[in-house]
Design a protein around this nucleic acid. Structure first.
Lengths: 272, 272
DNA sequence: GGCGCGGGTGGCACCGAATGCCACGGGCCG
DNA sequence: CGGCCCGTGGCATTCGGTGCCACCCGCGCC
């Protein structure tokens, strides 16, 4: 009855749909487009950092980049997106990582490698990431936008885990969907934790190593339906701690494949 | 330089700051306010369900509720908030649950009770929840808004867990912040999973029981003490194995010969 | 060369969400 | 009864976002 938005033109704001343009002349066009995105994003970050997010209008961003307001919205779906220009790209790259994963790999390891792709995107330009982090901490709108982005990764991983969980052995109670979701959220949460800590510290140090350590802890509490960890002898410790006179505690589902249980236990034991 | 939004009046759109108004005459005012919120929210839901979210203007919602457009924004910070009128309230109630938790209670159990408060809010009006669910599935804006709300609960729980994790025993490596975050996200994710499943099924059946079951699974993999007390690894035996329902619990001393531990476990597993 | 064609651009108009401001009106208290 | 508080209505304004049209530039084709 009213206007019925046609959503005609953009929706290609994200990464190029075809990873290989193949068209001879159209490649420069894509490069030009990317360059424009970078310039607009840089101008936006600059303005946001100096005079604040809300106080900065799209007009000013466009003017700073030397283009018209209308052009800005041809490259970004919204004002927020100028701060996260790479999330869409990274999402498809993460999906590609999952897609190209070797069949024998533990699905949990696969999604860990997937989110590491995200971490690499942040680590690729530490200065920008730190500035962006400062912004997202202050402006609620941006915080929610980032949360939404992270949720997209999480859903991707959840779907993947659900499709690669123990193809053969299905329980009747079937808590697999729950476990997939929880595992995906654990991996993503670990990533977020390490990332934020790294950003708060000014983006110094080796994030990837820290991330791997976090994954180690997550893996210790989750395995594919198996949780194995080291815990103190007498007391209730939140799984995965080591100390003298230590004891290995294993919690395993009896219906999980036997050899996988044994492998998990063996790995945990040999780790010291 | 521009307008510098004063953010003067609302920000009390959420629940009443004072749980006890105490003022004799001001109580009816709060009740009136609540009633208005309900009416506006109902009108909004009705319109959203019939003609869609984007196609519905705030003017129409206000008109349907018999008030002016300006009044709508006195009760809701935004158009989206009309769909989630109870989240702010529920957040403070969840915080109250954490606050009033007995000191001896397992923090993980406490946050489980906290999020159960959220579940109860959904369960209180199943029909509305289902309609809202349908909307959030379709409209990206609303989906992101809901994700943001959920993130607020998660942060609340993370902070709580961080403050109540094993006050005494702190490891030097100190992965507690990570574990707190992961645990909180696990609890919230479990809640989301059960909730969505329940809503997809048309809000039939006992959600709370399903939620408890999901908590059970989360507790099994997370622990805060993985049933280490039940089976003891004394000097005589290299490993003690006990099976509880679907789960195998093993406690083994790491200084015992590896193959002997493995043999003990294998024997116990095959004994099925 | 002229010509059409496709894609990026500028500019304009417009809708609608959101906020500030002021004036009205109805309860409540002194 | 006259003040006060507060919710409300209505108006004006800013600004994000979109549709539409005209323009221009590079390319291939007749």
């Amino acid at each position: 009855m009213k206007y019925r938005p046609h959503m005609s033109q953009p929706a290609r704001s994200p990464s190029p749909d075809t990873p290989e343009p193949a068209t001879p002349g159209a490649r420069r066009a894509a490069a030009q487009r990317l360059k424009m995105r970078r310039e607009l994003s840089a101008a936006a970050m600059e303005l946001f950092a100096t005079k604040g997010y809300e106080a900065t209008t799209v007009d000013e961003i466009a003017a700073a980049a030397g283009v018209a307001r209308r052009t800005f919205f041809r490259h970004f779906r919204s004002k927020e997106e100028a701060i996260f220009p790479d999330h869409d790209d990274t999402l498809v790259r993460a999906a590609a990582v999952l897609d190209a994963a070797p069949a024998h790999e533990n699905p949990l390891d696969t999604v860990c490698r997937g989110i590491k792709e995200v971490m690499r995107m942040y680590a690729a330009s530490p200065a920008v990431s730190v500035a962006r982090y400062r912004l997202t901490r202050e402006v609620p709108t941006l915080r929610e936008a980032e949360i939404a982005s992270v949720a997209r990764y999480e859903r991707l991983f959840t779907r993947y885990l659900l499709g690669h969980f123990d193809e053969g052995a299905h329980r009747e109670g079937d808590d697999d969907p729950l476990l997939a979701e929880v595992a995906a959220s654990a991996v993503v949460t670990a990533h977020n934790h390490v990332l934020r800590r790294w950003l708060r510290a000014g983006a110094q140090g080796d994030v990837e190593t820290q991330l791997d350590h976090a994954f180690e802890i997550v893996r210790e509490t989750f395995g594919t339906g198996i949780g194995a960890g080291r815990a103190d002898a007498g007391e209730s410790a939140p799984a995965a701690v080591s100390r003298e006179g230590e004891v290995l505690v294993t919690v395993a589902r009896t219906d999980a494949p036997l050899d996988e249980i044994m492998r998990t236990i063996e790995r945990a034991l040999k780790q010291r």
